[in-house]
Amino acid sequence: MNRIVTGIGTLVLVLLFLPLAVLVAHAGSLTAALSSAENRMALYTTLTSGILALAVDMLLGVPLSWFLSRRLSPGWQRFWGTCLIIPMLMPPLVLGLVLAYLAGPASPVMLTNTFLGLVVAEVYESLPFFVFAAWGYLRTIPRSLEEDAWALGKTPRETFRYVLWPLAATGFAVAGAMAWARIVGAFGGPIVVAYHPSALPVQIWIILQEQGLPAALGLALWLMVAVLPLPVWLNWRYGRAER
């Protein structure tokens, strides 16, 4: 039994890293990918819009996940837990179409082909994942921790700062890393809403059509290099927090 599990585990690890290996082997030169101004612009767009989208995710997702996990009765938690699956299941392409319909050229708020539109599309693709991950983590912080502090004369505000926030921060960091992965990989929404300014996934698509696979892979490798530090840092900084 143990041997089977080890075997499957090893095989899956190899399979998971196979795309990266192919990417590195076939990407050609990293500098070549960055020689074009469009590609450099796409990298810059991805990083700036991504950081903005992540900030919005945190700004909106932290209060929402807190509300869901600490302020709702278990019955309502289950209800909203089920409901939150719907935005997560919504195909990004469909999200993009809906956004384009709502904020297209005919609407008062014009988002299509703007930087803001790109950020909004990225937020829509990533926010449900942020909330789901953060909420799942917050739910595991036992209520008795708060109650014990209250029964020692500490107000909810003091309790939050000393007891809950350090624990919750780990959850928010993990959720942030997950949201970041969704943001930088966002393709379905942006290709409809924000073909320009092109973020990396869309630019990769453009390069693939114009110059073929090797050039696209080179840019894809840059995508990996550019987006990796944030989740690695979050994981390193908060991932080891002991409970």
Binding site: P142, S144, L145, E147, D148, A149, W150, A151, L152, G153, K154, T155, P156, Y162, V163, P166, L167, A241, E242, R243
Partner: peptide
């Protein structure tokens, strides 16, 4: 009065010590 406003302190049988302090 909320628990933290009462002149009463309570230690449960399975105390929840703050795990990271």
């Amino acid at each position: 009065r909320h628990p933290w406003e009462r002149p009463i302190r309570y230690v449960p049988q399975r105390p929840s010590l703050v795990p990271h302090k």
